[in-house]
Amino acid sequence: MTDTDTRIQPKKTGLTRRQKRRLSRAAQYAVFVAAVIAFAVTADWGRLQNQFAQAHIARQLFPDLITVALKNTVLYTLSGFVVGLALGMVIALMRLSSVGPYRWLAGIYIEIFRGLPALLIFIFVGVGVPLAFPSIQYPGGTYGKVAVALGLVSAAYMAETIRAGIQAVPKGQTEAARSLGFSPARAMISIILPQAFRIILPPLTNELVLLFKDSSLVLFLGVTLEERELSKFGNDLASSTANSTPILVAGLCYLLITVPLSLVVRRMESKALKEIR
């Protein structure tokens, strides 16, 4: 045995690798099953159904749920997205400018609006600005107000996304365009931006999902019945019916939009991964 003594002997532990794996999995399932059983036993199902799933109250929500609330949520979100995209684009280009003050301004904007809660910006735009400048009228009333508020919030994020997208386009693309005689601006528009947007389509769509949820902040602005979106609508009807079913239904409406969008994003991302050879 003198020879083999120098070799390292595998240390014997109590369990083999397979046993450890089985044990770990069994423990996780056990916790899960216990939690489900505990919830099923302790929950007051009658009360829950009464509070969240009243069919007659749910029916009462139609058609306004769709024709007013969902429509407004979509409108607020899309208009905010358009404003945010346009402003974000400008800020991204400023951030990449060769002129110092533009870069600083864009940097300051991004830091401020990424650092503030969206709600604060909503109140500022919806309440503060009209009080401070009575002469300013938002075009489109509440719609304009919301578009500006959501746009200001999302522009900061989108600017960073767009900047990253532009910088992700290889330098050789700019050089090829310039060597063909494209001016810097034309190279940016015809060659760089189309490629940048292809790269940032997933994160931009994610931003759209975030905006759908942020549009609920309209709740804190005074809006007319016709201007209510999903959250405000659900909240109003929940208090008028003294029941939470409208909240649940409004929530489902959000998911109806955000879940498919998220799936689309995941699809685009896996497709983009495949394209990188």
Partner: peptide, 16 residues
């Protein structure tokens, strides 16, 4: 530059 054609090591075709 319109009068000068340039060919790069990495081709630099426009992939889109």
């Amino acid at each position: 530059r319109r009068r000068i054609g340039m060919v790069f090591q990495q081709f630099n075709l426009f992939p889109h």
